[in-house]
């Protein structure tokens, strides 16, 4: 089973051709999406090995959180549960997807240490694995929104399909974050706890459990928060809006900035990753 023709690997430290190597890494990494998918699928099934309900636990734990928080906060904010709970469900589930993505991105490379130091593989595969794994988790949680909507008789209409481009934007951002945070966290081991704290803070300062209009005249400033801008591209269509140009513009801008940062870091330091993990 030989694979013709013979590939040639050439490396000259005086002329490292970093940009070319980074491009090749991404191209071959995407060509091996099957591997990333197999690894991501394995991550999920291993986590629930031997459990009767398996990945369904993802759905159950989210459902319990929704019921508890929905009823409590409706009371605290003096809102009608039937009006607040569907909104909160969308919010919390979409936020959960973002927050899980960011947390997972920090370990995209360090978790693959065993493979990185033993066999040559495009680093892109490890980032794709994070994206796929989060997509699977999201696929277990997003349908809950439909359940809550059915329970409370909310019909978002065809406009809900506008959430799909938002989810695609999520995937792009998750890939870039897995490269950027994965590298930073491999090099500086203090970053994962910092990211953890930032995400906790972001949960409270972003309109997840409170509605954006509650901040009054600060509302136009909210899209400056990248988490809000990104979240709103999916949340707004689901709760009957269409997403404003400002929101979409800011979400795309933040994703572009993230991707640019990831690309710059990847080009410059890709060759060092094996020494960092």
């Amino acid at each position: 089973m030989r694979h013709p023709p013979s590939p040639v690997h050439e490396f000259d430290a005086a002329d490292p051709q970093r940009r070319l190597r980074a491009r090749e890494d991404i191209a071959t990494g995407f060509a091996r999406w099957r591997l990333a998918w197999a690894l991501a699928r394995g991550d999920i099934t291993h986590r629930y090995r031997g459990s009767v309900l398996g990945p369904l636990w993802l759905t159950i734990s989210t459902a319990v959180t929704l019921a508890a928080l929905g009823i409590l906060y409706a009371k605290l904010f003096r809102m009608d549960v039937a009006e607040y709970l569907p909104w909160l469900s969308v919010s919390l589930i979409v936020w959960g997807v973002i927050s899980q993505m960011v947390t997972d991105a920090t370990t995209s490379l360090t978790a693959a240490e065993g493979v990185i130091r033993q066999m040559p593989l495009p680093y892109t595969v490890h980032a794709l694995r994070v994206v796929f794994r989060n997509a699977v988790v999201a696929a277990h949680n997003l349908p809950l929104i439909a359940v809550v909507f059915a329970l409370y008789g909310v019909a978002p209409g065809w406009g809900a399909l506008l959430a799909i481009p938002g989810l695609i934007l999520f995937a792009v951002a998750a890939f870039a974050a897995s490269i950027l945070l994965g590298m930073l966290c491999a090099r500086f081991r203090d970053i994962p706890p910092i990211v953890g704290s930032v995400m906790q803070l972001a949960f409270f300062i972003s309109p997840v459990i409170w509605k954006p209009d509650m901040v009054g005249h600060w509302e136009p400033l909210l899209p400056l928060n990248p988490f809000f801008a990104l979240m709103e591209t999916v949340r707004d269509p689901l709760i009957g809006g269409t997403g404003s140009v400002v929101i979409w513009g800011m979400a795309v801008l933040w994703t572009a900035l993230l991707s640019a940062g990831a690309w710059a870091l990847f080009v410059r330091f890709r060759g060092r990753i094996a020494f960092w993990v």
Binding site: S6, V8, E10, D12, I116, R117, M119, P120, F275
Partner: peptide, 20 residues
């Protein structure tokens, strides 16, 4: 590991022709 392409050299040249 260097010949396999896992570590990038800090100096010098390496040329490997053939599937590893």
């Amino acid at each position: 590991r260097t010949v396999a392409g896992i570590y990038e050299p800090v100096a010098g040249r390496l040329r490997v022709s053939g599937e590893i």
